[in-house]
């Protein structure tokens, strides 16, 4: 017996096209390579003191955003195709809220700090 909640139906030994698996493997390899590259770049910029201060923060921040997008694309398989609209909407909405909450918090707390200690 099996159905919408639980069950142990098979289906795992269906023949799979090898081409698709190869494509998938390639996607994960792409993801890994890009992520390694971006990580190395971020650490390199900081450790070898190529940049400093606000410029460093801005660049490593940008690299982090790019890496998040890369991992979403290659590891979590989120892209702009139609079938995943709802997941994408959810992620973008979360991104907006994070922006509001984190940005707002830093603005508010920074402002209070400045007025009390500055």
């Amino acid at each position: 017996m099996s159905g919408p909640w639980e069950g142990n139906a098979g289906g795992h030994n269906l023949p799979q096209p090898n081409a698709e698996a190869r494509q998938e493997r390639a996607a994960y390899l792409w993801g890994l390579s890009l992520a390694l590259l971006l990580t190395a770049a971020a650490f390199g910029l900081a450790v070898f003191k190529i940049l400093a201060g606000p410029a460093l923060l801005a660049v490593i921040g940008l690299l982090a955003v790019i890496q998040v997008v890369v991992q979403f694309r290659f590891f979590l398989h989120i892209d702009l195709s139609k079938s995943k609209r709802e997941d994408l909407q959810l992620i973008l909405f979360t991104g907006l809220l994070i922006l509001i909450m984190v940005g707002g918090s830093l603005w508010i707390l920074g402002n209070l700090d400045q007025r009390m200690m500055g």
Partner: peptide, 18 residues
Amino acid sequence: SFTVWLHHFFTMGADANV
């Protein structure tokens, strides 16, 4: 509703812009 939370602590001392 996610953009108004500071109105619960207007008097905490943030400046007029906030």
